[in-house]
Design a binder for these strands. Structure first.
Lengths: 215, 215
DNA sequence: TTCGTAATTATGCAAGTGTATAAATACGAA
DNA sequence: TTCGTATTTATACACTTGCATAATTACGAA
């Protein structure tokens, strides 16, 4: 029997799960969690709906897995990109801010996903835990960078003060991230990272915009 | 026939529409637009589902009306509260920032609504128009306050620079508003308005935290 | 009081929903 | 090659959804 008459192809469990998760994410971004129906997900992943049940015992389980995947990818992406930058502690901090506010991290689809999941995150304990873990990860990392940049500049701050600075900067960064994704046309290209670096610099009292070895 | 045996009570069209809209908003905040079913809305408004059709020819129409109502209420509320403050231009600006980041403006329900409507806003032209109008209103008002505060301090800035400052401050305020509503427990009481005033002040180069007639 | 009519309820329907279960089929092991 | 079995499709079911239409009922006008 020729391949052309094959009715389907077997994939590994990981490939299928990943395809289903990606199909779920794209639909959730477009139409929300309830709009991402099993049939629509199956169609987008090019399988029949029964297959979903074979890999995820319920739609809830698929959605939770998709959220977990998305959040992990976002965090990894941000940290990986920011880690590439060489330079002083101040440069590192500036790079993290910039990376967080540029594509592919800051992007309409990511914000649409964030918005679509918000309801469920507030009600589902497991999703809430995932959310708080990623949030805390980012904030701690940001706090370390702020401390290093201030140390480097010869300034010392109390733990309380440092905590406040990190909270403020994190709020500004997350906020601008949301704004940029929700209203991509409200900002000129590169404007958003600029505002972020300017604001974070202003809050902690360092000029982040000049590079380390300027004239 | 005694009142106790009445099967229903007639209300004016405005009262019923308002009740249906409020029921819709509370359900959309909890479960998203698709989760706010006609039957659930009717139950929450204490009517039978057929009545909805009598006032709104389609669910889409009800949802659009609810969004319009919500956005108008939010804008009015913010401007009304901020307008009460007496003092210098700097005080006015600080008050607008604070008001935007305190309850009842900054509040989990309002952010949940924002998130739930985001999908529809991006796809429905009428909702997009409503959104952009309210957004522009706020930004223009903010820009006027910034200009006045800078004038008052004897600083003059170019229109381009002013536009940039307003965009930056607006981004920070909206962003913090979202953060505060999405993670109400991440900030101590009063911390968020403080961060907002601090950041906006830092961006435009004025200390907004001291009141006008300090020693 | 009676009565007309608009507000409200009651009932029904076709399409879409998640989930369950049976049937078909690809593909590695023998 | 043959065959077993996990993967995948096919089909069905009970329930929910938005919308439509008929049947009631409240309440002001006469």
């Amino acid at each position: 029997m020729s391949d052309a008459r094959r009715k389907f192809k077997r994939e590994t469990a990981d490939q299928r799960k990943e395809a289903l998760i990606q199909a779920t994410l794209s639909l959730v971004a477009e139409k929300g969690v309830r709009g991402a129906t099993v049939r629509a997900i199956a169609e987008r992943a090019d399988v029949t709906q029964g297959l979903i049940r074979h890999y995820f015992s319920t739609k809830e389980e698929l959605v939770t897995a998709a959220y977990e995947t998305h959040m992990t990818e976002m965090t990894d992406l941000t940290f990986t990109m920011a880690a590439k930058v060489q330079g002083t502690a101040r440069d590192h901090l500036a790079a993290l801010v910039r990376t967080s506010l540029e594509p592919p991290v800051a992007d309409p689809r990511a914000v649409a996903l964030w918005a679509s999941f918000l309801n469920k995150v507030q009600q589902d304990a497991q999703m809430k835990a995932t959310h708080e873990r990623t949030y805390a990860d980012f904030r701690d990392r940001l706090q370390d960078l702020i401390r290093a940049a201030l140390d480097e500049a010869g300034q010392s701050v109390s733990d309380t003060r440092l905590h406040h600075l990190a909270t403020a900067c994190n709020g500004v960064i997350d906020g601008l991230w949301l704004e940029g994704g929700a209203l991509p046309d409200a900002f000129a290209p590169g404007e958003l990272p600029g505002i972020g670096v300017e604001s974070v610099g202003a809050i902690i009292g360092l000029d982040l915009e000049q590079r380390a070895n300027q004239p």
